[in-house]
Design a protein around this nucleic acid. Sequence first.
DNA 1: ATGGGCGTTGCAGAGGATGCAACGGGCCAG
DNA 2: CTGGCCCGTTGCATCCTCTGCAACGCCCAT
Lengths: 249, 249
Amino acid sequence: MSQTVDRALSILPLLAEGPADLGQVAERLDVHKSTALRLLRTLHEHGLVYRQSDQRYRLGARLFALAQEAVENLDVREIAHPHLVELNAKIGHTVHLAVYEENEVLYIDKVESRYPVRMYSRIGKPVAITVAAVAKLLLADLSEPERRAVAERLDYPMYTPRSTPDATAFLKELTVVREQGWATDLGGHEESINCIGAPIRGADGRVVAAMSVSAPSVVVTAEELLTLLPVVRRTADAISREYSGNTPT
Amino acid sequence: MSQTVDRALSILPLLAEGPADLGQVAERLDVHKSTALRLLRTLHEHGLVYRQSDQRYRLGARLFALAQEAVENLDVREIAHPHLVELNAKIGHTVHLAVYEENEVLYIDKVESRYPVRMYSRIGKPVAITVAAVAKLLLADLSEPERRAVAERLDYPMYTPRSTPDATAFLKELTVVREQGWATDLGGHEESINCIGAPIRGADGRVVAAMSVSAPSVVVTAEELLTLLPVVRRTADAISREYSGNTPT
DNA sequence: ATGGGCGTTGCAGAGGATGCAACGGGCCAG
DNA sequence: CTGGCCCGTTGCATCCTCTGCAACGCCCAT
């Protein structure tokens, strides 16, 4: 809608690919160098881009702070976190929390027991939307036409032979998930990883987030993982209750 | 430099404080509602702001993805990480990695052994720049006039009685750190937490990052922590060597 | 019903963004 | 050492695009 801002913001994903110099930015934006320079300067003033010692630009530090504060405004996460930690302590597997936003499903929290992984390897990263249990849960709650629209728009990469192959299969899966109130991902993303997930609902019954438990099949079989379903659902329900209760702040 | 972009970007920190509606944004920017609307729309198209169900705007999900990719471009972090993990395995305490950028010092990695903390509670967050060991290390490497300029500009919150009280004390501390090549924070941020840190240098000898080890004083006394200094410095030096060696890629 | 609040749209005018051309500094090769 | 090249930077005139206004429509509360 606003050309200048649009151009400026287009620089960010561009720099996300890696550092670039003025000429490269100008070329990619298809504008004159002097224009690119002014845009970059403005971004720089706001800390969104940083000029490294070789004069090339890369994404800046303020982005962290903003992403940070963005996540802190998500009150679901705040309420859910202690529950996730508790569940993790109980069953030992990795626990994820995810939300749906603007055609993307993304993890907003993760609790991992075994070893301290670099958490940012997942947090904030869009999930494999066609196969992840949390994605199925979040999309299943959309209205039928919305589900259809999203399903048609997606790609269906075959991460493994058990990945969701196409829109038809995906929509069918969403219907199942919608009715049973929980979801699985049995080796659909990575051959040896299974997940089970449950939805977190707001006071109006709509799904506001989804949580999942993941475990490698070498540790627990899919059947064993499914025995955890009750406790996972109980946790999700507890979060739902607390979230609904707190809503009228 | 570019008014339109400048205004648009000013919306982000504003929304970081919490969700806001169109009128509030327009007022804070001191522009007409229609102008604010167009700016918000553009930000929205780029996923930087999200319009929640009550029509108010808040920071959007794409910010995660960007911050995510930003951190992945920091090659110091990549090189340092395995070393930090190794050190953590050896001594068991929390290990931090931080860089200086645009008048801010911020953590870009953290390895915590005991329990899986919410990593993003620290990663990306600006550190207590007047007291943290890593901050001292990074600032100590600036030129004298730069140090002075930064020191004057800072606030000196007294987190504890042992916090750095003012610019004079801070500059003196920086001189010490600069000469000895390592730094401490003994209860300067939180009464019961001590840290020791060492600098990571690039091929040109300049400090590109700093690492630190933190431990609660109830577990190890400050004196005991200081006995770890050699191994911390060795780790930092190992990272420096690898970083310098890899630089001519 | 009716008024107020809020978001939205179309438009004309003006202010700002754009691209051009020229400058300057660093770097490499001759 | 010197020339030339590349890249970032600056000032400026032109034109585009952003801006603020006013009017509309919608929803909610009175």
